[in-house]
Design a protein around this nucleic acid. Structure first.
Lengths: 122, 122
DNA sequence: CGATATTTACGACTGTCATCGAATAAGGTC
DNA sequence: GACCTTATTCGATGACAGTCGTAAATATCG
């Protein structure tokens, strides 16, 4: 129950969300494709750790416009949901829904341990 | 030291395998990348159903040279192993190894149900 | 209203990758 | 050895995707 005073407080009763696909209509290949990119996989891991994130808060080694592009890809593939709050857009993982649609998939990806270093010392 | 009788019998003691990566050194992103292609995902499903398959036995809508390319990709990413038997190469999923390295990953992918049809009726 | 911050949209470049066809290598058969 | 089958490799091509910069849209603050 939010109670806003004179200072700018957002009202949370009518939250707007960006359009997102029904996971029942999403193919597992689409999700795999979305998760296959290194930057996107990093975004997913960050969102899993922090809960929510936006274009500027996500620590990824690409420009903002590129982050926006990746967030769009992840959203359209059903991996994350984005809600508009004031000036920013906060994205989060659709963890529960994904777990129901593809049991164990996202869980196993997030639980994956990094490879033992240096495949070939060159 | 081949010992063949009149009828063509294969000897199974010295089986040769194509080189494959140590899964401990494989990143989950590499596997996701390998599984993200539609043709490769189909190959993986076919191999899961039939146990083993080769370039010609796999029913995929691309030419043999392309199948060979995909099999190579899947092998180098650690998804499948290939053993040479006579003139052909039989590939199979490294299911158990993958399950140990990325618990639940391949399982969830193979268990994934197809999407409910017609995302957009056009 | 102006100024700033956040994000997206658009256009362009670039690199990667899937695909094919032809050539090559290797196995098995006659 | 000649021949066919199987599979890979190579080069070329075409399409897609990741990246960036800039412009545009929206919201917040003064």
């Amino acid at each position: 129950m939010k109670d806003r005073r004179s200072t700018g407080m957002r009202l949370s009763q009518t939250e707007t969300w960006l359009p997102q696909p029904d996971l029942a209509r999403v193919d597992v290949g689409t999700v795999l494709q979305a998760l296959s990119d290194p930057v996107r996989l990093r975004i997913v891991r960050l969102l899993d750790a922090t809960g929510e994130g936006s274009c500027t808060t996500l620590d990824v080694p690409v420009k903002h416009s590129t982050v926006s592009h990746h967030l769009r890809t992840l959203r359209e593939s059903g991996v994350l949901a984005t809600r508009l709050v004031g000036n920013t857009r906060l994205s989060r993982l659709r963890k529960d829904e994904l777990e129901r649609r593809f049991p164990g998939l996202l869980t196993s990806v997030l639980a994956a341990t990094p490879p033992v270093a240096t495949p070939e010392p060159a």
